[in-house]
Simulated assay, not measured.
Amino acid sequence: METIEFQGGLFSDEVQGGRTGARIRLGLEGVEAETPIGQHFRVPYADCQLEQGGASGRMIFCHTPDRRLSIFCEEKGFPQALARSGGERVVEELKRLGLTARKERNRYQLQVVLGLVAMLLLSMGAVRLIKLAGTRAVHSLPVSVDRKLGGLAMEAMSLEGPKVSDPVLVGTMEKLVSRLEPHARLPGLEYQVTVVDAPIVNAYCLPGGRIVVYTGLIKAARSPEQVAGVLGHEIAHATLRHGLERIAQSASAVVALELLLSDVGGMLAMAVELARHGVLTSYGREQESAADMEGAEMMLKAGMDPAALADFFAILKEEHGEVPDSLAWLSSHPQLSERQTELRRRAELSRPAAAEPLGIDWDEVVRHAKDPQSRHAVDSKSKVGEHPGQAESR
């Protein structure tokens, strides 16, 4: 049988960064991919679930049923070759995808033009400038884009453990968020809090204001102000639009050009894939520092001392070390001691004018977090062993 190969890529937690380019081969039993460093992956035809999308609208994604592996390609002859190699089931899947081709025609024509421009600029060594411009362009997008991205990402991500319906835990987190919300930099976000029952010291805020807090974080904190500091930091990632920047930084030059033209279709598709592989909520050193300072500013305006977050860092450093691999919420960008020093310096420069007590019985909150018999958990789509951003979270 003739070997059929294409250029494409894949999404998988087993590759660095969650995404890599790959050489794709249509084998006897499935779609196979080999990465530049020699890793091999395969999606069997019998299990292959197809999806059309990507920046061009013509990219074909071959997913495993659990979506832990996605092989993708947008070369012109790939669908036809896949139909010849994949058998009747794959042909039916491709026919189903063909129903949307007419709707994508105008978009595809635009992508052809953008692609030609991108190729021209590539030859001129300007791709980095395009992507930088695309990253900056996200700050001019309407907030409705953030909300759309956050909703899609929340649906795509897997949590580790069930959602918690206990009013003590959920109500306390909502109370802390409502205290910070009036002082958020970006208006128009819709904050929604989800508490997840899992022993993970983690919290994150998706674009648009979707907040997830793990009970492990609640149990590790010694005061509500410390958790408020964490929430302020995470909300700052959303108000500073770091998630949108993360997508733009990971996107191709074509998607960056789309953003410059206020076309967010490719960005939405990229957000879903990054969310599925836990990459959307991992940030760089500058973004982490900016979120620390922005969160501290929110706490000050809300009548809370930002040194509480530095105190939380001190607890975690004492119990787990400088860069604790076991903690999902922390990152080595920058390290704990550096972030703690900067936060204390900020707190010394400006204490809250009128500190207002939160009125929260923290001992009771921690008891609810520790005792599964004292709360009622609701069912979740989450899967054990998967939780977003564990490798390089905040």
Score class of each variant (00 low, 15 high):
82 L>I: 03
333 H>D: 12
323 V>P: 02
66 D>T: 08
172 T>D: 06
158 S>A: 13
71 I>Y: 08
341 T>A: 14
129 L>D: 12
206 L>D: 04
133 A>C: 06
225 E>F: 09
229 G>S: 01
9 G>H: 08
345 R>D: 13
245 E>T: 11
47 D>Y: 00
335 Q>S: 12
203 A>L: 01
214 Y>D: 00
46 A>S: 06
173 M>E: 06
198 A>E: 09
196 V>W: 00
282 S>K: 04
240 L>I: 10
92 E>P: 04
127 V>D: 03
243 G>E: 01
36 P>W: 13
3 T>Y: 00
293 M>S: 08
224 P>K: 03
34 E>S: 12
226 Q>I: 06
192 Q>L: 07
181 E>P: 07
136 R>L: 15
165 S>V: 03
261 L>I: 03
198 A>Y: 06
112 V>S: 10
331 S>T: 14
2 E>M: 06
137 A>V: 06
242 H>C: 11
39 Q>Y: 07
11 F>D: 10
313 F>H: 06
46 A>N: 01
57 G>R: 02
205 C>I: 01
77 G>P: 01
195 V>R: 11
184 A>L: 15
197 D>S: 12
367 R>Q: 15
340 Q>M: 15
184 A>M: 15
52 Q>W: 07
122 L>N: 15
283 Y>Q: 12
21 G>A: 15
59 M>S: 07
110 L>G: 13
200 I>H: 13
208 G>C: 09
366 V>P: 10
129 L>V: 11
53 G>D: 00
148 K>L: 13
271 A>K: 12
228 A>D: 08
364 E>H: 10
43 V>C: 01
191 Y>P: 09
172 T>H: 09
388 P>T: 03
118 A>N: 13
366 V>R: 15
329 W>N: 10
214 Y>I: 00
257 L>A: 02
290 A>I: 03
15 V>Q: 02
302 A>K: 01
170 V>E: 03
100 T>S: 13
221 A>I: 01
284 G>D: 15
234 E>N: 03
384 V>Y: 13
146 D>I: 08
119 M>K: 14
33 A>D: 04
172 T>F: 05
155 E>S: 11
217 L>H: 05
318 E>L: 09
204 Y>R: 01
36 P>E: 13
203 A>P: 04
224 P>R: 04
389 G>A: 05
265 G>R: 14
178 S>Q: 09
164 V>W: 09
78 F>C: 12
163 K>T: 09
297 E>L: 10
301 K>Q: 06
105 R>M: 13
52 Q>F: 04
59 M>V: 07
224 P>L: 05
112 V>Y: 02
172 T>Q: 08
362 W>F: 03
9 G>P: 12
393 S>M: 04
199 P>I: 00
239 T>Y: 02
206 L>P: 08
61 F>L: 08
324 P>D: 03
326 S>P: 08
164 V>K: 07
201 V>P: 06
318 E>F: 03
381 K>S: 09
161 G>C: 07
243 G>F: 01
314 A>C: 11
331 S>G: 14
152 L>G: 05
369 A>S: 05
126 A>Y: 15
211 I>T: 03
155 E>L: 09
370 K>F: 02
55 A>C: 12
176 L>F: 04
343 L>F: 09
25 R>Y: 04
212 V>M: 00
178 S>F: 00
30 G>P: 00
134 G>F: 10
